[in-house]
Each structure stands twice: as structure tokens, then as C-alpha cells.
Amino acid sequence: MDSLTCPSCGASLPVETRFVKVVICEYCGQSSLLKNRSLDPTGEKVNLASVDSILKIGTTGTLRGEPFKVLGMLRYSYEDGFWDEWFLELQNGKKRWLQEDEGEFTSFGKESITSPIPPYKDINVGSSIQVNDLNVFITEKNRATISGGLGRLMFQISPGDKVEYVDGNASGKLLAIEFTPEEINLSIGESISLDEIELDES
């Protein structure tokens, strides 16, 4: 495990996985790009308000029995508040996002899009659309802003960036489609109850 130094505050920031591209200092909020085993402070410095959560950067435990470690966190804000997405590394090296919104957790994995997705403006809450081979009932449509992040992430974030998103339900599977000017991301997941998350004693 490498340990790097925050170029802004000098804090020691361990980096355990080779997929990490961005490190956000937990102490000063400085976002840095990981280049040639050193941190380049290219991103903005954003201090996120701390919230009560069972998770924090570095937390380990099991998700439905599968061991995980929290690497990073992204916060999105929208007109009605905000939600956090925890970036988890599973024991087998796979990555998951654990969304936490008002005490409810949803585990998401990124999926490839294999069929055309209607434009954001044509999607309506309460209607159904076809995504890949799934018939998706749209439950939410909104715009959000990336407020900031913490820890290690696989991509660079720009706080203040806007995203359009729709959420849906396909026979109990939860879908999140994120529209940015550059790409459309599809994530498919499941609702997770609290007793399915077990944390190691720290």
C-alpha cells in the first residue's frame, strides 16, 4: 500500500488500489489527480459538511456477506437536499457504489448500455421505458449537482458539475441513468436493508 502526501495540507493519504485516479483529502478537501505515484492538486478544494452515517472512508465490513472497504464518497445535491454515494471495493476487486439517501441504502453496479435510451427530456415519471432487456418504470427524474467527494475515486470530479438523472424500477431491480453532456451512465442495483451491512469493529 502506497502512502502519498496531500499537496495542500500535508496529510498522509494511503492509496491501496491501482484503479484510483483521484484522491480527495479527508482533512482539507483538496482534490488531487494521481499521476506517476504523486498527487497533482488540480481539483477544487471542497469541504463537505459531515453527516451521520454508519460509513466513512476506510470502513470495512460485509455487504450481503461479501467483504468490502469504503474507498471514497461522492455527494450530489439537488433541490430537496442531497445524497451520498459510497465507493466500495469488494474483496474480489470489483467495485460497487452504495447509495445512501435519508437512511436508505441501494447497492449499484455500473452496467453497459445495450439498447438506445430515450433522451432525458422525453422520459416522464410514471411512464415505462425499455433499457437493455428491462422494462423500467420511472420513479424519479431530476437534476443534481456534484457537491464534492472524499477519499479515492476512479475518475476526476468537478464540484458544481450538473447531471440529469432518472431513477426507475424494473421488477424490483433499481436503475439509475445519469445524463451528462459527455456520456450516459447506467447503474443497476438493489435496495439494501441495514441488517445486510455488517461493519467490522474499528
Binding site: 451521520d52 435519508e102 437512511g103 436508505e104 410514471g126 418504470f137 424500477n169 424490483g172 433499481l174 441495514l194
Partner: peptide, 27 residues
């Protein structure tokens, strides 16, 4: 644990409501 539930109260009765993810969604 930070999750929400609701009590709906009208002049006749009280109902306890919990958010769910339905397997067959619809309105």
C-alpha cells in the same frame, strides 16, 4: 439507524407507513 417511517393520522385512524421498493412498480 437513520431510516424514516411515517405515521399518518386523520380524524378516524392512525396508519404506520414505511418506504418500500415494490417488485411490481406502478401507479
Amino acid at each position: 439507524d437513520g431510516s424514516y417511517a411515517y405515521i399518518s393520522e386523520d380524524e378516524e385512524a392512525f396508519y404506520f407507513e414505511e418506504p418500500i421498493t415494490p417488485e411490481i412498480p406502478g401507479f
